[in-house]
Simulated assay, not measured.
Amino acid sequence: MASLRSLWTGLVLLGMLGMLGVLQTAAQAQILLSDFQQEKFMGRWFSAGLASNSSWFREKKASMSMCSTVVAPSADGGLNLTSTFLRKDQCETWTMQLQPSENPGSYSYQSPRWGHTSLISVVEVNYDEYALLDTKGIDHDFHMATLYSRTQTLRAELKEKFSTFCKVQGFTEDTIVFPPQTDKCLKEKE
């Protein structure tokens, strides 16, 4: 009887350790960058990968194309993200004003159109090549992952990294998009 109890105790502990590993993996994706260097994050990025739980995103993902985003400092210490994208065969530009939060690489954004607030966090970055961003609604059900690239061409390893990141965040394969490049609206150099 004692050995059966030891076996069950061992199995329960093993199960808990396994669960902790899963939780740790999910939590690792949320680790904030204590050494985030905002000035190195500035400049042009391309939206190379996207995933979202939004119904709007699911409806539009087939018609999405890569957009370019210029990250610049704002007067309040936050960031201005100015994105240029193709919509109905026209180039449109949209600017998001991100407010700094208490954590490095983490910003809040309030949508002027909907009034909703989201938390945008840079969870991994190689300032010369790519950045992984995680966006979660604070007062609404919204979750988005973004892969920024410094170039329009993306290495296969980065696609795999982004897909893995998205799946850890709970996104399914059908919610992950790698928007195709377009000649319109994108400029490699300013």
Rank of each mutant, 00 (worst) to 15 (best):
Met96Asn: 03
Gly21Phe: 09
Pro100His: 09
Gln169Asp: 12
Ile176Trp: 02
Trp114Asn: 13
Cys91Ile: 01
Ala27Trp: 12
Met144Glu: 02
Ser55Pro: 08
Trp8Met: 15
Leu11Cys: 07
Pro112Tyr: 00
Glu129Met: 08
Met42Tyr: 13
Arg155Trp: 12
Ser68Met: 06
Ser106Phe: 07
Gly15Trp: 09
Asp76Leu: 13
Ala75Asp: 09
Gly78Phe: 09
Val71Gly: 03
Glu92Cys: 05
Pro112Cys: 06
Asn126Ile: 05
Glu59Lys: 01
Ser52Pro: 05
Gln38Glu: 13
Thr146Ser: 10
Gln181Asp: 09
Lys136Leu: 15
Ser149Trp: 12
Phe142Pro: 02
Gln38Arg: 09
Lys61Asp: 00
Ser111His: 01
Thr117Ile: 06
Pro180Thr: 03
Ser63Asp: 11
Phe171Glu: 01
Lys159Tyr: 00
Gly105Ser: 11
Gln90Met: 05
Arg87Ala: 12
Ala2Asp: 11
Ile31Arg: 10
Trp114Arg: 13
Ser83Asp: 01
Ala26Lys: 15
Val168Phe: 10
Glu124Gln: 04
Phe36Leu: 08
His140Lys: 01
Thr9Arg: 15
Asp139Gly: 06
Ala156Leu: 14
Leu7Pro: 05
Leu119Asp: 11
Lys159Ile: 00
Asn103Ala: 15
Gln37Lys: 12
Leu13Glu: 04
Cys91Asp: 07
Gly15Tyr: 14
Ser55Asn: 11
Arg155Ile: 02
Thr135Tyr: 04
Asp174Trp: 00
Asp134Ile: 10
Val22Gln: 12
Gly77His: 05
Tyr130Glu: 08
Asn53Cys: 02
Asn126Trp: 12
